[in-house]
């Protein structure tokens, strides 16, 4: 550590779990570095103060989505949150919508199980190599930016409060990314409407507020998929037509 700054330090409170499933915040003092992010501080604690602190991080570049946590109760990426943007005390806790593994590490494995249920990409027959228009690429691109940090799942009050049978925003985005794929043939609104429980979402837009990739989750994925489901399953004209047959 450089000494010339006269050892400026910050205090950071980190949530620690104990053996009995309980836990609480513990305070640590960390030397300040220019442009420091929360992950730097947490890693400092883990490497130099208490090596048993359980943390999860990977790319430190906001590209992998491993270091999702709640910083002063806001779901954020630790690697992307500059210390100098936080006023007052810094409190870091794990994402609370998931079960805890230890300390800051949440058990996000259920997300991979949900992903397995989403009908996979099923392209139509077409001459190879495919011809696709850039404008169609752009339509799906937004949803493909998702880095699977699961912050949107964490902030979603349907998941938090009810654990209802709603797959959650991340998985609607996934379904949308496939539905919007110019070559795909499946309509996943059926899955979302039935097993996916998209009806539970009451479009409070919390998910798109926390998305580090700036994906308009509610506006562009959830509402679109809800409308598709509505068209498909609740359209009175369609019902009448079906009955006639």
């Amino acid at each position: 550590m450089s000494e010339e700054s006269g050892k400026r330090v910050i205090n950071i409170s980190i949530y620690r779990t104990d053996e009995n499933g309980g836990g609480g915040y513990k305070d640590y003092e960390v030397p300040i570095q220019e442009g420091m992010v929360v992950l730097d501080a947490v890693r400092y604690v883990q490497e130099h103060i208490d090596t048993t602190l359980a943390i999860r991080w990977n790319c430190k570049a906001a590209r992998c989505g491993s270091c999702a946590a709640e910083i002063n109760n806001m779901p954020k990426l630790m690697c992307k949150t500059r210390i100098d943007t936080i006023k007052g005390k810094i409190r870091v806790a794990p994402m609370s919508a998931f079960n805890s593994v230890a300390d800051l590490v949440a058990d996000v494995s259920e997300n991979y199980l949900i992903n397995r249920q989403i009908p996979e990409f099923s392209p139509r027959e077409a001459e190879i190599p495919w011809k696709i228009k850039q404008i169609d690429v752009e339509r799906t691109k937004e949803f493909r930016k998702c880095i699977e940090c699961f912050l949107c799942q964490d902030v979603c009050h349907v998941i938090r409060d009810h654990k209802a049978d709603y797959v959650g925003p991340r998985h609607v985005v996934k379904a949308a990314s496939l539905d919007m794929h110019p070559m795909d043939t499946v309509d996943r609104s059926e899955f979302l409407n039935n097993e996916g429980g998209i009806g539970y979402c009451n479009v409070t837009k919390c998910c798109q507020e926390v998305c580090p990739e700036g994906i308009k989750i509610t506006d562009n994925a959830i509402i679109q998929e809800k409308e598709r489901a509505a068209d498909r399953f609740y359209d009175p004209l369609l019902w009448r037509r079906e009955k006639k047959r």
């Binding site: 190879i128 495919w130 011809k131 696709i132 690429v137 799906t140 794929h181």
Partner: peptide
């Protein structure tokens, strides 16, 4: 690359719709 595209990957395109 073509196979990856058939697996579902999306690449940017040229004006003719080929891979950029």
């Amino acid at each position: 690359v073509y196979e990856l595209e058939r697996f579902g990957a999306v690449f940017d395109r040229t004006p003719e719709g080929k891979i950029m």
